[in-house]
Simulated scan of single mutants.
Amino acid sequence: MTEKTKSNKEGILFGVLLGVLGAYQLFKLPPAMPLLIERYGYSKLLAGSFMSVYSLIGLIFTMYLGRLLGKNGPWGLLGVALIFTLLGNAITLIYPESGALMLGGRFLEGIAFAIIAIAGAVIASSSASPRARPIAIALWTTWMPMGQVASSLIAIGIVGDGYWRPLWWVAIAASILMALWGLRIKSVGGLTFPTVEPGRGGEKSAARLRETLLLTIAGCLFALWSMQYIGFMSWLPQYLVEAGGITPGEAAIVYLFPPILVAVFNIMAGFFLRAGMTLRLLIVSTIIVEAVVWMLIPVMGTGVVGALALGAYAIASGLTPTGLFALPGAISGDNPASASRAFAFIMTGRNTGALAGPIVIAQAVTLFGGWNIVGPLFGAIMTVAAILALYLTTRIHRGS
């Protein structure tokens, strides 16, 4: 296979925006959460499950979906994702008072999200030339914060006035527009999706086993990181309302700023990697910063020191995931045929952490009677993550 020397810019953009749409579907809920809890009486555990169900579905199906995408390409599964997205959003709009049906709607959305998470990443990465790939990965990494920004911008104008349904109507409209764009790309053959060559799926060489081991460790690392980040972002608006004493509308405004800063540094990390920064330096150092900030939360307050610490956390949270999403290429040697499989490991880890994060916070706050326990808890988790990151990146660097 000859490596491409020119990037497919439309393919990169389509993959990135596909991811942003998936992230918007996930994060349209948190800005509306205080309003929904007040209006429909959901418990914290149930409300946390509305976020975690996405990750549960991803945890169950991601490896299988990765194999399907690697074998058959993206278009059929993306069609399934569209159908489930429309159904899930419609159920929520019609039956918001039923916690069970609300959870069922989020379940269907979660299946779509699991498909999009792998397909978007592979499309964006494989559409880039080798030189441009770090930048394409960095752009892809903005999928989460940009989905948060989009949901927050819409929520700012409506949540304060007691409305939440427009967030779901926008999700439906955006899904249809992306589907039409995908049909146009498919009709002109404007996308090359890497698939596994026949006969190679059962390869059991020592190199393949080493790759599987390192991808598994990378998935565990991503699980620890996403547990604290997704948990934090899922409950931030509710935390601001309960602990900060602000209104849901004001919380939606505050919720807008961290993901903007995160997205900026997602992209900067791509340029750092292209300039020669090692994954070990990028990932380990930023995780250490996040661990320190979590440890300091109970004592730093909400003044200037607290704001600076939150800024440092947002910067580190922007740099870390670009490094984590670059791990499949570092481990698999940028082999396009392994792309879907490698990203499936990473996304399985992400889903594991994202499943646990919102529920862990909900249970910790309930058991300990307040939010102060969250900082030390996630500080300890990120300390473990820093040690694991050092081990993994050292193994990759040594090629052992």
Rank of each mutant, 00 (worst) to 15 (best):
P34R: 03
L35T: 10
L35P: 14
L36D: 13
L36G: 12
L36T: 12
E38H: 11
Y40F: 06
Y40D: 10
Y40H: 06
Y42M: 09
S43I: 10
S49M: 10
S49I: 05
M51F: 13
S52H: 05
V53G: 07
Y54V: 11
Y54N: 14
S55A: 13
I57V: 09
G58K: 07
L59N: 00
F61V: 06
T62N: 06
M63W: 10
L65M: 12
L68F: 00
L68Y: 00
G70W: 03
G70C: 10
G73F: 00
P74L: 01
W75Y: 15
G76I: 02
L77M: 06
L77H: 03
L78H: 02
A81C: 08
A81R: 06
I83V: 14
I83A: 13
F84V: 11
N89R: 10
N89G: 14
A90G: 14
A90F: 15
A90C: 15
T92C: 12
T92F: 15
L93S: 14
I94V: 14
Y95L: 10
P96E: 15
A100K: 02
L101C: 09
L101P: 12
L101Y: 08
L101R: 11
M102L: 14
L103T: 01
G104H: 01
A112L: 09
A114P: 09
I115K: 04
A117H: 00
A119Y: 06
A121V: 04
A121W: 01
A121P: 06
A121E: 08
S125Q: 08
S127E: 02
S127R: 00
R133I: 08
